[in-house]
Design a protein around this nucleic acid. Structure first.
Length: 616
RNA sequence: GCACCCGUAGUUCAAUGGAUAGAAUACCGGAUUCCGGUUCCGACGAUGUGGGUUCGAUUCCCGCCGGGUGUACCA
């Protein structure tokens, strides 16, 4: 790495260059250059500017190939001419070099100092404040069933949902976080029945179990008893189908569902009691995970409105009824198939409920964009939902977004509920925190901390490891979660980023102890290295990354950005002094840079729902 | 069968149509040390396959191969 000395004059003249706009300034200058050199107007889209790769000198690179049609010259020649023009006429550009068709531009060091100063002065750096008239986004995520606890798959869902909301807010959108709870249906009745038959009045209090785990256990128990029953029947010589048809347990469960739908008081009371246990359990899990909701919908309240909408659609002739009474939508004009909306017995299916839920939501809020965070196994479902809502006359149907994500596997392989290899969310989080505690103790990092501090840090690190590892991966891809790798203090991990933050904060604390004040302005000369300029450049890109993440609904972009920032800082300042630097101008620059690196890491991690400790 | 998604170092992940495809981790070599376990440096190592579009393709289009998911009365 080469270091070069620049004296930054007090009165440099780049007032017109504000921080986010270096690229824009360059683009305009390049357009101007083309106009003067070739007497032609280029489209802004023809100006492809990108960050200069590390192995070359420069900050930004102009790819000249798209411009050859205008210049009618060779790539090298074109680059040479534009470069010369820019150095002579654009104050931002101080040097250039040409490699093949690539024009590498070096930005004046004064610009970087100025940029850092402006970033520091902007309390919203990277984020757009939310205004009252901003577009309203509703984001549905989590969507649990009330018959079993949350597992690893839900963890990815919750983290993505929460993170997406944070990213949208950082982009100035109004966000309503919502959850749809699947609280009715045969699966709940199985748990209820098992509890009635074999529960002996067990409660979360009496058993010491979380409510959702308790109910989950009864669901499993039902399954076990049902299998035993089937085995007995099959031993008596019944076929598999006959045994299933003759199941007393299933019959009782279905009977319970009928009573529930009929509003039978006792059944409804039991249902309510057991669901409340589950909700208490979920609340604990959500709190531990750090996610929350503004408004929760329950399918028990949306399936009837859904039915109404379907019947209305039937009247309007949008749907048709078969001889057996079932209601269908013919989607063949859109290239899809026929879709069932109401069963022959008049009861609703999943799709019916989602139509009802959508209607209630749009009655409740002036939603501009509805986003569903749901696994990719339901891609087809949401494609159909969008079309159906549109057919029913809801304008929002067409624009709904299915934020589709892939499965999470473990290094050992897939989770299979039948084989008992499902990873429970509560257990997982507890283990992560425990591992963080052990690792910290081993490394002796927290010897000076109070037990409360140590506990809080273990929590941040354990959960940070989990969250970062899951969120850094492109949501739409299937992924493998490796708990061990995730909690490593080196590498592209949450703990490494947290460590870097703690390290920067420690530097700033020491500065304060030594009576070195953070500068409020940088108006002196500084000796900047390429790395330092690169760090300022990285800092300035934060806003762009956040914006891109928001417009693409792809939160993983944030992770890679923050990691790079942390890594670059950590690497460079491992053996470059900050506090012992004798040149005070340089020291001031480094302090201010440190402060803003820490702030940006903190802001970035906030978008992941990850807390960063002051020390660790 | 049909539809959608995914195939990148041993492994886990990157790469708005741009330069010699980046990290991390593992393994190997060197340095460092209270240390087989820490830290630093170095080396090794990849676009499933065949075409097409383009000045330029991991990226876009078509055909294969492989994996995943879904596909009319589960949610």
């Amino acid at each position: 790495m080469t270091e070069h000395t620049f004296f930054v004059p007090l009165s440099f003249q780049f007032r017109d260059i504000n921080r986010m706009n270096i690229e824009q300034t360059l683009q305009e200058a390049i357009l101007q250059a083309i106009k003067e050199l070739y007497q032609a107007d280029a489209e802004a889209s023809q100006i492809t500017l990108q960050k200069t790769k590390k192995e070359f000198t420069g900050h930004y690179t102009l790819v000249t190939f798209p411009l050859l049609r205008i210049s009618r010259k060779k790539p090298e020649e074109t680059a040479q001419e534009i470069g010369t023009y820019l150095v002579e006429n654009a104050p931002v550009v101080t040097e250039f070099n040409v490699i093949k068709g690539f024009l590498n531009l070096t930005i004046s060091p004064a610009v970087w100092v100025n940029l850092l100063r402006e970033i520091n002065a902007d309390p919203d750096h990277g984020f757009t404040p939310v205004t009252d008239d901003a577009p309203l986004f509703m984001v549905e995520y989590s969507s649990p069933n009330t018959n079993k606890p949350l597992h690893l798959g839900h963890v990815r869902n919750n983290l993505l949902g929460h993170s997406l909301c944070e990213v949208l807010k950082a982009n100035g959108k109004r966000v309503v976080k919502t959850n749809i709870v699947n609280d009715r249906g045969i699966h709940i009745c199985k748990s209820m029945l098992a509890w009635q038959l074999w529960g002996n009045g067990e409660t979360p209090e009496s058993s010491g179990k979380k409510g959702d785990h308790l109910i989950g256990d009864y669901y499993v128990l039902f399954d076990k008893k049902h299998k035993e029953e089937q085995a007995v029947l099959q031993e008596k010589g019944l076929s598999k189908e006959e045994a299933e048809a003759g199941s007393k347990l299933m019959e009782q469960a279905r009977e319970m569902l009928r009573r529930w739908e009929a509003g039978d008081e006792e059944t409804v009371a039991l249902w309510k009691k057991m669901n409340d246990w589950v909700y208490a359990g979920f609340d604990e899990t959500y709190q531990q995970m750090g996610v929350s909701f503004d408004k929760i919908y329950y399918e028990s309240e949306t399936y009837l409105p859904g039915k109404e909408e379907v019947l209305k659609g039937l009247e309007k002739g949008l749907f048709y009824r078969k001889e057996d009474g079932s209601v269908w939508a013919d989607l063949s004009p859109t290239g899809l198939d026929h879709k069932l909306l109401l069963r022959a017995d008049g009861t609703s299916v999943y799709m019916t409920q989602d139509i009802g839920t959508a209607k209630l939501r749009f009655d409740d809020y002036p939603i501009d964009t509805m986003i569903y965070v749901v696994g990719n196994e339901q891609n087809y479902h949401f494609q159909v939902l969008s079309i159906l809502l549109d057919m029913l006359g809801f304008e929002f149907g067409k624009g709904l977004v299915h934020f589709s994500y892939g499965m999470v596997e473990l290094p050992e392989g897939k989770m299979k509920s039948r084989e008992g290899t499902v990873v429970d969310a509560d257990d997982l989080m507890a283990e992560m925190i425990e591992t963080a505690r052990e690792t910290s103790a081993e490394l002796g990092k927290l010897d000076e901390a109070t037990p409360e501090e140590a506990e809080a840090i273990a929590r941040m690190v354990g959960l940070g490891a989990l969250k970062y590892f899951i969120l850094k991966v492109d949501p739409k891809k299937n992924m493998t979660f490796n708990p061990q790798e995730s909690i490593d203090f080196n590498g592209n991990t949450g703990p490494f980023i947290q460590y870097t933050h703690a390290r920067v904060r420690s530097i700033l604390r020491k500065a304060e102890e030594q009576g070195i004040a953070l500068p409020d302005k940088l108006d002196t000369g500084a000796l900047l290295s390429e790395k330092e300029e690169g760090l300022v450049q990285l800092l300035s890109e934060f806003g762009t990354v956040v914006k891109q993440a928001g417009s693409e609904y792809n939160v993983s972009l944030i992770g890679n950005y923050v990691y790079e920032l942390a890594k670059e800082f950590n690497q460079f300042y491992h053996d470059h002094p900050i506090l012992r630097e004798e040149n005070t101008a340089l020291r001031d620059f480094r302090l201010l840079l440190s402060k803003n690196v820490a702030l940006t890491i903190k802001r970035g991690m906030k978008l992941f729902g990850i807390d960063v400790p002051e020390r660790m």
